[in-house]
Design a protein around this nucleic acid. Structure first.
Lengths: 183, 183
DNA sequence: AGCAACCTACCTATTGATAGATTGAGCACT
DNA sequence: AGTGCTCAATCTATCAATAGGTAGGTTGCT
C-alpha cells in the first residue's frame, strides 16, 4: 500500500470532517495539515487547489453514500426506507455532522464552480435512488411524479432534520423527527 | 430620522443578505462596506465585532419572522400552516436565499458563542408557535408530544426544502415539495 | 538515475480589528 | 447673533494574523 494513497485519504478524511461540521468556508489548509501531520504545501501536491480538494471529497462522499445504499431493489420497500434514514442518522451520530452535500447545498452560492456541479450530483442520484424505491412499492401504483414528490420530501426532511437537530437537542430531536417515517 | 439608524439598518440588511446566500463565513466587512457605501471602520462603530453584527442580524430576523406570523390563534389551522409555509417560500423567492437561521444552523459549529445562542432561539420560538397551531386544530385531540413531532417535521421539511431547492431547479422543486402540505 | 512525496521558505491578498483625526449638527453661554 | 463645546458618525491609515498558493530543494525508494 502506497503512502501516497494513505496521505490523500487522510487529507480527504480531515477535509470531509471539517466541511461536515463547520462548512467549506470555515477550514484552512493549515487545519488539514495539522490533523494529518504534514505541511500545507504537501496538500497542494495531492490536490492542486482547495476547490479540487472539496470536489474530490464531495465525489467520494457521493460514491460511498450510494455504495452503502446498494441497488434500490435489494430489500423490501420498508427496509430500504429505513436503511436510507439510518444512513442520515449515522451521519449525525458520528459527531454532530451534517450530510456533506447538505452543508454544501446551504453554502452553494459561495462555492467554486466545480464543487457546485459535484454537490448537485449527490442530490440527483439520491432522488433517482429514492424514486426507484417508491415506485417499487407494489401495493399502490403511483406515478413517477408522485414518487419524485415523496423522494423530495424525505430528502428534505432528513437534510433539514440534521440542521434542526444540531441546533436543538441532537439525536433525540432527530429520532423524534423520523419516528413517523419508520412506523 | 437619524442617519445612524439608517446606516445600522443598511449594514444589517447587507449582512443578512450575505449570510442567507453565502453563509456567515463567506462575507467580509469589506463586502458590507462596499454595499452600504462606507468604510470598514465605520461598521465597527455600529457593531463592535463581526459576531455582534451576526447576532444582531439573527435577533432581528427572528423578531421580524415571528412578527410576520402573528399570534398562533389568529387564523384557522389550515391558514396558519399555509402562511407558515409561505413565509419560507418567500424567503427563497427573494433571490435564492436560505432561511437565515437555517444557514446558521448548518454552520453552527463554526459560529461564535453568542450567535449560537441566538440562532437556537429562532428554532425554539418557531417550534412553540407551530405547537400552538397544531394543538389548536380542534377536530383531533393530539398530545403535546404529537404536536411537537409535527412541528419538528414541518420545520425540518422547509429548512431542508430550501437547501434541496437551491441545489436543483429552485422554486419549482420547492413547490413540488410543499404541495402535499397545502392540500 | 529517476521519480514520487514531502519539505522549507516565501509571496501576495485578505481578514477582522484598532488608533486617532476629521466632520458637522446641536446646544449653551455671552 | 456669534463663539465655542460636545458628541455622534465617519474617515484615514495601519496592524498582526491568516488565507491559498508557488518555487525550488531534500529525501528515500526502485
Amino acid at each position: 500500500m502506497s503512502s501516497t494513497a494513505d496521505t490523500s485519504t487522510k487529507i480527504m478524511d480531515a477535509a470531509e470532517g471539517y466541511i461536515r461540521t463547520k462548512g467549506y468556508n470555515a477550514f484552512s489548509f493549515r487545519d488539514i495539515a495539522a490533523d494529518v501531520g504534514i505541511k500545507t504545501a504537501s496538500i497542494h501536491y495531492h490536490f492542486p487547489s482547495k476547490a479540487d480538494l472539496g470536489a474530490a471529497v464531495a465525489e467520494r462522499y457521493t460514491e460511498q453514500f450510494l455504495e452503502a445504499l446498494g441497488p434500490p431493489d435489494r430489500y423490501t420497500f420498508e427496509e430500504q426506507i429505513s436503511r436510507y434514514i439510518a444512513a442520515f442518522r449515522s451521519s449525525y451520530s458520528s459527531g454532530d455532522q451534517m450530510c456533506l452535500c447538505g452543508m454544501l447545498g446551504a453554502e452553494i452560492s459561495s462555492l467554486p464552480e466545480n464543487m457546485i456541479v459535484v454537490s448537485k450530483v449527490f442530490f440527483v442520484k439520491n432522488l433517482l435512488w429514492l424514486d426507484q424505491v417508491y415506485l417499487s412499492k407494489s401495493d399502490d401504483n403511483i406515478s413517477i411524479e408522485q414518487a419524485r414528490q415523496k423522494s423530495l420530501r424525505l430528502l428534505a426532511l432528513l437534510e433539514g432534520g440534521l440542521i434542526v437537530a444540531r441546533s436543538l437537542d441532537g439525536m433525540a430531536t432527530f429520532d423524534q423527527l423520523i419516528s413517523q417515517e419508520l412506523a
